[in-house]
Amino acid sequence: MNLQRRDFFKVLSAGVITATTSRSAQARPTFKQPPDAVGLLYDATLCIGCKACEVGCKTRNEKPNVHSEIEEYFGVSGVWDDSRDLDSATMNKIKVYKNGTAAVKDREIDGFSFVKRACMHCFDPDCQSACPTSALIKDPVKGYVTYDKDACCGCRYCQVACQYLIPKFEYHKALPELVKCEMCNHILEEGGITGCAEWCPTGATIYGKLDDLMAEARKRLELKPGDRYSFSVHTVDSDEKKSRPVEKYIDHIYGEKEGGGAQYIMLSAVPFQKLGLPEMPETSGASKSETLQHTLYKGLIGPIILLGGMVVATYRSTKKHQTDE
């Protein structure tokens, strides 16, 4: 008996050593920006809260209005989209931060600000890492994260994983689907731009190559508050400009480093945490989770050694039991 126990520990420690010594070699880094990444820049100081982007999003993606209790009460429908948050019919949502008297826009105290919430299209999406059926895939070139309903098994692990609470699920359908912003890739393929950027009248949401957007965002951060600046409308390289005074930005581009980086980046005059955007580490949850998993399972060496040891041990002990009996 002692012999076997020793054998077992030998095998166990062999497995553990294999697993742990190879740790550094297998640490999975956070993925970097895709080569031809496209993205969106949202500038909260330009947003007038008109929700045209929501209408554009719903039009482009053929999503229905969310009906309110008021509508139900009066027996009318189609009057008002009353989505209160991102939901299974709303991939893009304008929310408002209000403080005190909410008298002035883009001010933290006694002010207000809008924020447009939608998928961040992370460089290293947690949802992609979590999905057991590869239903959420990040485009290797342009980098938008798309959903394949034919692969999805509806386990909703992506919802658990996503720190931005983006994937939404149709809980009230017999044959439900997941709903998330896919950066209107069906329109992009035809040469168009995303619904939100196309509809936005003020240039608060602009579409473009991520590098250009990032450069534009950096440029805006360096502008002097109060100076006039010509903001592009719809796309970052658009001829359509809108001139207006520059607000005092928070010196941070949200989405530049959050979770390893994202393709939806934001500027604001109100701290991003006040706008409900989580403070995120600079590495992705996916890298953490996969590093752990790969450490334990790389090449299945650990488990196979463990299994070998167990087979030997059980073989011996079952034999012994049989002879005992």
Binding site: S134, C153, G154, P176
Partner: peptide
């Protein structure tokens, strides 16, 4: 619990399985 239970086999099929997912394991 799974919403699209008829797709559950996709977890095991070579084309769709995602070994990076802990759920897969």
């Amino acid at each position: 619990d799974t919403g699209r239970w008829w797709n559950l086999q996709n977890i095991f099929l070579p084309g769709t399985a995602n070994p990076n997912s802990i759920m897969f394991e």
